[in-house]
Design a binder for these strands. Sequence first.
DNA 1: GAACATAGTGTATACTATACACTAAGATGG
DNA 2: CCATCTTAGTGTATAGTATACACTATGTTC
Lengths: 247, 247
Amino acid sequence: MFTYRYPHPAVTADCVVFGLDEACPPTVPDPGSRRGSDTDARELTVLLIQRDLDPYAGAWALPGGFIRLDEDLDAAARRELEEETGVRDLYLEQLAAFGAPDRDPRERVITIAYLAIVNLFEHPVAAATDARNAGWFALDELPRLAFDHELILETALARLRSKHREEPIAFEFLPAKFTLRQVQSLYEAIQGERVDKRNFRKKLLATGVIIPLDEVEMDVAHRAAQLHRFDRERYEALRDEGYRWNA
Amino acid sequence: MFTYRYPHPAVTADCVVFGLDEACPPTVPDPGSRRGSDTDARELTVLLIQRDLDPYAGAWALPGGFIRLDEDLDAAARRELEEETGVRDLYLEQLAAFGAPDRDPRERVITIAYLAIVNLFEHPVAAATDARNAGWFALDELPRLAFDHELILETALARLRSKHREEPIAFEFLPAKFTLRQVQSLYEAIQGERVDKRNFRKKLLATGVIIPLDEVEMDVAHRAAQLHRFDRERYEALRDEGYRWNA
DNA sequence: GAACATAGTGTATACTATACACTAAGATGG
DNA sequence: CCATCTTAGTGTATAGTATACACTATGTTC
């Protein structure tokens, strides 16, 4: 038991984890090998877990849990995420604190919400299957969520959209070697608007930080596209000199 | 005494309050009436309080304090701010949570930091003088701060700069009727760079939400400038249609 | 009325965003 | 092997926006 002279709230860290996952209903995995699946068969998804304890037992919720007293906030978010879903090695940034007095029926719980991005190209197995009761949901097929997690998710999505316009965050979703088409599809998935192919490519290449490689994609049923990489060092150097990403 | 089965951190709300205040050292108030003081005699300042209890007794710190268990996070920020400094009626938005395990020597304390802006034109007296041990500090004359408040302040300043580029937040600092010169001086103070007068005015007026009035400023020792107002309704309507401020 | 301080104004040029449609390459299936 | 399919890859003209730049106007002060 822990006693204090003044009342203390509980504090949790919850994560809104975005990924670019195969486009299929999470409960009905597509049978067959699905080798060489293509970005256009992928869509923006969110990682949820199914609660097994009350309150909201059985409901879907954001992964997260209580912060330990000797643990940094970010560390708690990463730890809870790994414990509940097996997902590691991700991009993580603090989103906001949510603390409406009645958001948890048990006691006052303030949550520090995180926005995370997992690269399902680089870590596909762990992320897709590790946890028994975790699942990826497309944005238009979300179930009802426990607590105020719908509000948190909406906030995260709004932040993802604006961040994606203002920083080269797209490459957190994509493999190290990607096609320009993948960047564009992802742009369209996140922003929810279509853009012109020629103009989009022009703008991307004009940044000087998207480097064409002497390789093309493989296992596609049509002409293979050239692969590119993102030159992060170069980008960071430019950014520190005042350059601002905008695509 | 309050008892819990698991350890709980304490949670505070701290505010980084920005204002456009008369340019004078906070400890040496300028004698004399100072009527009709002009924007150029004003500078971007931050509101700090001097702690009278340990830890860090005597040091300057951000205003803030413990969140009550039945109170929303924003409400706690506003309440603490009013209790400690007398400042009310301000623009307030959540900045971030800071929770390094050792940021408070007493116990684990997580703080939800807020970025606030007080309009010292509309609420000058309360803000400037209400509290015995509160003071406005220019950004280049800040004292050492208690806890991790320097980190919080830097984070707030970075956020203020980017927010000020992306949203018409300048008008939170300015009187309802302002001159274009005031907007420009404030822009230069926040961004720390000088801009061209003609281009700046052109861009401001081109937004269509800065409305010229049939009035000029008073009590200035030179040609009086025309007053303008910010049409917030119009701006919000445009924004909701996809228009994005950028000045 | 001279000196001062800030208000207020326009144009030319470079840069950036947008709109728009066809050919090239490789895969597939009869 | 040929027809068909699918996506890759490319350029130009135009409109819009950002920048650079310097003088006259108006009111105050002494």
